[in-house]
């Protein structure tokens, strides 16, 4: 039982990481109708900048703040230089151009920091464990990720539902031409939303740094999972991104943990050994195919 609770926490933690990535991506999809494969690159930029600034300043908090600002700047710059011209293009152009951006970002990072993974430190006070319940000790840093992720989700909800910016975002997602016709500076709105999404991806990268390998190409390892999240949740919907992220996080984690033992109870152990890991790695794609077959617009589609 303790183990199941612990695995649910693990799934939750993976889910909120995916959510931070997915939130920005889904907004950019929903509002600008832009497929941005290079979103994973911003995650990588966040991780590298946080590592660099933490080392340079000696303060984790300051390092995180500077890295967030840095990723925001990189995001806005990318939008202004390359992506702005892509909004009116079709998905094919967007996929290819942002595929090119992935190569450019990865190689730029390799030029600056080399191809080897770099060490991203965790401050002393974030190490260690917390006893949540009897027999359940959970790493402090992972709990922090869950808390930060849920806090960001709440803040995003507030911004989108309660503020003028949020109103514009919602309006933009459902009818772009109408927003433009109302005299809103749509270019500025786009740039703001893109920068915002970039910073969220950066935040995910910053938090990933101390526990994952910080190296060129680290963004692509999570990118495809994030796409699954968005498509399952429904494009353009923050609510969908959150639901999708938690579902994918839980399905993936629980699948990895319990699929093999479960299969062993229904088939022979050797068959479970062979099929379990393979099936676990395909599980989220299977989930996505099923969702799309039943609801082609995802679970929480923002547009009819």
């Amino acid at each position: 039982m303790i183990l199941i609770i612990e695995q649910i926490l693990n799934g939750l933690q993976l889910g909120v990481m995916l959510f931070l990535m997915a939130a920005g991506l889904t907004l950019v999809f929903g509002i600008m109708n832009l497929v941005n494969l290079a979103h994973g690159a911003l995650y990588m930029v966040g991780a590298y900048l946080a590592t660099y600034f933490f080392q340079a300043t000696g303060s984790f908090v300051l390092g995180v703040a500077l890295a967030l600002a840095g990723t925001l700047a990189v995001g806005i710059l990318t939008e202004l230089v390359a992506l702005r011209t892509l909004y009116e293009r079709d998905h094919l152009d967007q996929v290819l151009a942002t595929f090119g951006l992935i190569l450019i970002f990865n190689e730029l990072i390799a030029m600056l920091w080399g191809r080897a993974a770099i060490y991203s430190a965790l401050p002393e006070y974030l190490q260690g464990h917390l006893e949540i319940a009897a027999g359940l000790r959970y790493p402090l840093y992972r709990l922090l990720i869950i808390v930060v992720g849920l806090a960001v989700a709440a803040a995003l909800w507030y911004v989108v539902v309660r503020t003028r910016l949020g109103m514009l975002i919602r309006a933009g997602a459902s009818n772009r031409t109408m927003v433009a016709a109302l005299g809103i500076n749509i270019r500025l709105l786009y740039t703001v939303v893109f920068g915002f999404g970039a910073a969220l991806a950066g935040l995910a990268g910053i938090m990933a740094g101390p526990i994952y390998a910080v190296q060129p190409g680290m963004g692509e390892l999570v990118l495809i999972q994030v796409f699954v999240v968005i498509v399952v949740g429904g494009i353009g919907s923050i609510r969908g991104a959150l639901a999708g992220a938690l579902i994918v996080g839980l399905v993936d984690t629980l699948g990895r943990a319990f699929l093999k033992p479960f299969l062993a109870t229904v088939t022979t152990p050797s068959a479970a050994d062979a099929a379990g890991p393979a099936l676990a790695s395909m599980l989220i794609y299977l989930l996505m195919a099923v969702v799309l077959a039943l609801r082609p617009e995802g679970l929480f589609a923002s547009r009819g």
């Binding site: 183990l3 612990e6 695995q7 693990n10 799934g11 933690q13 993976l14 992972r142 990933a208 526990i211 994952y212 390998a213 680290m218 390892l221 999570v222 984690t253 629980l254 990895r256 943990a257």
Partner: peptide, 10 residues
């Protein structure tokens, strides 16, 4: 794979 937390719990 990048996250091993589920496997480490097991």
């Amino acid at each position: 794979q990048t996250d091993y937390q589920a496997e480490l719990s097991q």
